[in-house]
Design a protein around this nucleic acid. Structure first.
Lengths: 108, 108
DNA sequence: CCAACTTATCACAATATTGTTATACCGGCA
DNA sequence: TGCCGGTATAACAATATTGTGATAAGTTGG
């Protein structure tokens, strides 16, 4: 058998055994969030899609695509271009998933 | 003259007139941060580049590229793949830049 | 020294994202 | 109605990112 590149085994070792199923869903949600993130930033700046496009050296249809909730092609470079144009800073973080309770959670 | 797609004028209107210069630098720093973000996450999970690559269905050289501080090709899809594999959640935010003080900042 | 493991780098094919133009749809307004 | 601004969609070219295999260098342990 493969020595260290057996994905299933590694997954179990790292996550406890059920991370594989969460993969697909998370991506869909992030795409949706990103679309809204862009829309909100543009709206807050009071810009039209054409204006924002001009700011980042692009065209209006590109912004329309980015703001479509089902668009899956988001890239970091595009997000950075938008952030820079709007004088914002793009912040990225990996945060623990729910379900990995640390210590006791005092529910009641 | 162009009606609404004059980038310079829009920039001045949105940012106050000096955002164009901050664009390039911010991107370089974000790339560096992302490289470290990936490295930290992988190290925290106790995985080798080969193991992480296997988890996301890729190969070791790809991870090496992503962790190189001067790599500029980071994509959201890749970050999401890594986050999912490590059972983490990718969080994205646009935050105001320093220098855009709102109201009075009570310094002293 | 040798073997195994990890990481780094190169080159090129394969795929994904962006660029660009054209056009359609909608709502507001004269 | 007709015009205008704003947004959405389509199609294809151009560019960027990933996939893949080969290989080198550094490290650790025998």
């Amino acid at each position: 058998m493969a020595r260290t590149t057996d994905a299933v085994k590694i997954l179990e070792r790292v996550t406890g055994g059920d991370a594989a199923m969460t993969a697909g869903r998370a991506e869909a949600k992030v795409n949706f969030d990103v679309a809204q993130l862009i829309y909100d930033a543009r709206a807050a700046a009071g810009l039209s899609q054409s204006e924002l496009a001009a700011l980042i050296g692009s065209k209006q249809p590109v912004i329309a695509r980015l703001e479509a909730a089902d668009y899956e092609g988001h890239s970091l470079t595009m997000l950075q271009r938008i952030a820079s144009a709007l004088d914002l800073r793009l912040e990225l973080r990996f945060i623990p998933r729910n379900g990995v309770r640390r210590r006791k959670s005092r529910l009641a």
